[in-house]
């Protein structure tokens, strides 16, 4: 397969970026999107040109490192699939594919397709944890958690922190991400103790870097972890709850 790749090149955070077009002539349908860029990079290096910088690590959809905007859509054409699991079979021979970094003001471009997603970690750092020190935990069987609760919590805990939800959102909102974290912990007995303070801290921090939600629902379309849109409702639920409870929990 022949594919034209129009790729965003940007030397550094402060440099101005622009698109450059390359061609890969021996793409195959079973290649992943990232393997396609690997192929391109090998070719660029052989020609003595600088390869395209992009992030990836596990290449199996779990680490959340990868992520590029493909023809305007974060991660790529297939819904709920990370870049590393997008395949060339989604494109047609001779097509021009546009590769850009994740776009959001909270994610400054560091180089080419690599962005700085530390704003997400700041949300976690502000309260996305449970204050239990090593060795002080009670027996894990002492607080029963029903099968359904554990599974539901896991549905939200599955977030891989890729930031695609933010890049998909026309508002640059991190509601899906933050809502997933809040829901995961608030469903579990061990996370309930700090439920209220956590919600206040994380939502405050979220609002620093990210936009408000207008219920576009695009986030849930691209989310590789399949976080349900319910997570965005969890933001106001948890925040309002903390107003009415006025307690740490």
């Amino acid at each position: 397969m022949k594919l034209n790749l129009q790729v965003w090149r940007q030397a550094s955070r402060t440099a101005t970026g622009r698109f450059e077009t390359y061609q890969v002539t021996d793409a195959t349908p079973e290649m992943t999107l990232l393997e396609l860029v690997d192929r391109l990079n090998d070719q660029l290096v052989a020609e003595g040109r600088e390869p395209v910088a992009f992030e990836s690590d596990c290449r199996e959809g779990i680490c959340g490192c990868c992520g590029m905007t493909v023809d305007g859509k974060p991660h790529g054409p297939e819904d709920n699939t990370p870049s590393c699991e997008q395949h060339v079979r989604s494109f047609t021979d001779g097509e021009t594919v546009v590769l850009e970094p994740f776009r959001s003001d909270a994610f400054p471009v560091i180089r080419d397709l690599i962005v700085d997603r530390s704003a997400l970690d700041r949300v976690i750092q502000s309260g996305g944890h449970v204050a239990v020190d090593a060795g002080t935990a009670p027996d894990a069987d002492s607080a029963p958690i029903t099968f359904e609760t554990a599974e539901l919590s896991l549905d939200f805990a599955a977030c891989i922190g890729c930031g695609a939800c933010v890049a998909a959102c026309p508002n640059g909102a991190a509601y899906l991400f933050t809502g997933a974290k809040l829901t995961h912990l608030s469903l579990l007995p061990q996370g309930k103790q700090e439920r209220g303070t956590r919600a206040v801290a994380m939502i405050d921090q979220m609002e620093h870097d990210f936009g408000p939600c207008s219920t576009y629902g695009e986030c849930a379309v691209v989310c590789p972890a399949g976080i349900p849109l319910t997570a965005i409702a969890a933001i106001n639920k948890e925040r309002l709850r903390s107003v009415f409870r006025r307690k740490a929990t």
């Binding site: 305007g72 003001d105 959102c169 026309p170 508002n171 640059g172 909102a173 936009g211 408000p212």
Partner: peptide, 15 residues
Amino acid sequence: LRARRARGPHRRRAM
């Protein structure tokens, strides 16, 4: 306005 600012100059395309 907040949403526009948070998104930055590169608008979401291809919705």
